[in-house]
């Protein structure tokens, strides 16, 4: 009998999956875990604000003009006596709402369009996809948002539409490239050979193999959406009826001259914390899910 040659992997040896390996690596990434913990903390704050467990009085006047930091008002009050802490926490909900909606839709859209373009690479379908992505990328983001906000008038989701319609292209390009690579592999060839229709091949066999890209893109897109929301709200193009860190920062322009900075400091600090944590998490995920490193 032939013995197995030492140094060669045994055909029957258990092989760790990409996901399991990634999870293993993520667990050992302290910065990533810290980022995750902070994001979860923000998420809890956001869920509480959505459910009305806290920050429900963000719109009420509960104090005096520019009230100081106190047990009742942890971050003081603004120019009309509203509690800055409640407004900041409520804004966390807004940030997550915008981040989640935009990230899921933009990444989903990018995945589908990118996969279709990649699968049909070098055909007229791919040409159209590339042209569309090129055109959208060529329009400056804030001009695009202003145009869409104007076109949709008072629609509270104008900002979401604008972001989704521009953010998907990055994911689209990445997925397209990945799909071009995947479509030449044996499992796709095999599916084709047994007559699986293209739509099923794309959605059942190819797209699941791009999830590691999509997951990282979700986190990056989430962060981009939050940052864009703050900027747009500051400019008056974002949140129409509600509260956001961008609106708080814009509100603070009324207070600088009088030497009050609570709105600015609180909103900026919370924004910084969330973006920083998400970036750490995104970095960790990228490292963990990178097939080359996993291999």
């Amino acid at each position: 009998m032939n013995a197995a040659q030492p140094g060669l992997p045994a055909a029957t040896a258990p092989r760790a999956s990409l996901w399991r390996t990634a999870l293993y690596k993520l667990r050992r990434d302290r910065a990533g875990l810290l980022g995750l913990a902070v994001v979860v903390l923000y998420l809890v704050a956001a869920v509480g604000a959505w459910c009305g467990w806290w920050a429900g009085d963000w719109a009420l006047i509960t104090g005096t003009k520019w009230g100081p930091v106190s047990a009742q008002h942890w971050f003081g009050t603004n120019i009309i006596g509203q509690d800055i802490f409640q407004r900041a926490i409520y804004s966390t909900g807004t940030a997550f709402q915008v981040g989640l909606v935009v990230a899921v839709l933009a990444v989903g859209m990018g995945a589908v369009i990118g996969a279709v373009g990649g699968f049909f690479a070098a055909t007229w379908i791919d040409e159209i996809v590339l042209w569309l992505m090129g055109v959208l990328d060529a329009i400056p983001f804030y001009l695009m948002v202003a145009a869409i906000a104007f076109a949709l008038a008072d629609n509270p989701y104008a900002m979401h539409v604008a972001m989704v319609s521009t953010f998907w292209t990055t994911t689209g390009r990445l997925v397209r490239g990945e799909v071009i690579k995947l479509r030449g592999l044996e499992f796709v060839e095999a599916a084709r050979a047994i007559g699986v229709p293209p739509v099923a091949i794309i959605f059942r066999h190819i797209l699941p193999n791009t999830f590691h890209i999509l997951l990282v893109q979700l986190t990056l897109c989430f962060v981009d959406a939050i940052k864009a929301e703050v900027v747009l709200s500051f400019l008056g193009l974002g949140v129409k009826d509600g509260m956001s860190w961008g609106l708080m920062i814009s509100e603070s322009t009324l207070e600088f001259l009088a030497g009050h900075f609570n709105n600015l400091i609180v909103a900026s600090a919370l924004l910084f914390g969330l973006v920083f944590a998400f970036n750490m998490l995104a970095d960790a995920l990228q490292d963990a899910l990178d097939p080359k490193q996993v291999a």
């Binding site: 719109a59 006047i61 120019i79 009309i80 509203q82 008056g236 609106l247 322009t253 009324l254």
Partner: peptide, 26 residues
């Protein structure tokens, strides 16, 4: 921002008499 804060002040005062927040629209 200032007109917006006028609105917020007005809305908060209406909420004091039980006017639902979502029924005062900017």
């Amino acid at each position: 921002v200032k007109p917006r804060m006028f609105f917020e002040q007005f809305r908060a005062q209406l909420m004091d008499i039980g006017w639902p927040q979502e029924k005062v629209v900017l």
